[in-house]
């Protein structure tokens, strides 16, 4: 039984389409009989990641591998990178521009929520090169 592999692209110029990947993944996971708690963890953490790609990185790529016992998600972008990852991980720390804050985003909970809802969380970022976040949720 092969793992299920999925790829998503978060477009560069359309903020309103962020969230489509997590919605699509959620619909697929519901067909696979995973627990609702696991599906919730996956969709929240991926959703936060998508929003980050759209706000900070001008889009990016998501790859997802669904195995019978875990869901692994990697989000990659060629954005500006994060100068101080530890600071960025702090709850409430935000560099989001005003226009997305007015939409209710940018509360500084994106990365902290991803870490909170994922069972494994890794982040690698290089200024001027981009950021990669990988998360795993056991199901």
């Amino acid at each position: 039984m092969a793992d299920i592999h999925l790829e998503y692209v978060v477009p560069e110029d359309d903020f309103t389409r962020a969230g489509e990947a997590s919605a699509d993944l959620k619909a697929r996971l519901k067909k696979l009989g995973l627990s609702s708690e696991a599906i919730r963890k996956v969709s929240i953490s991926l959703y936060e990641g998508e929003i980050n790609l759209a706000i900070h990185a001008k889009g990016g790529r998501i790859s997802v591998d669904v195995a019978p016992d875990n869901v692994h998600m990697c989000l990659r972008d060629d954005g500006p990178g994060i100068p101080d990852v530890a600071l960025a991980m702090r709850e409430g720390y935000s560099t989001a521009p005003d226009e997305v804050r007015s939409l209710g985003f940018g509360a500084g909970m994106g990365l902290p929520n991803m870490k909170k809802y994922a069972d494994e969380f890794e982040i690698e970022s290089t200024v001027g090169v981009g950021t990669t976040v990988c998360m795993r949720v056991f199901v």
């Binding site: 039984m1 092969a2 299920i4 697929r28 519901k30 067909k31 696979l32 009989g33 995973l34 609702s36 019978p68």
Partner: peptide, 23 residues
Amino acid sequence: EYAPVMELGKTRQESFEKYEELE
């Protein structure tokens, strides 16, 4: 109580197999 009518198979393994076929 959850009524799992949207799941593809009765077990997770069966659901995964049916998902591949679905794709």
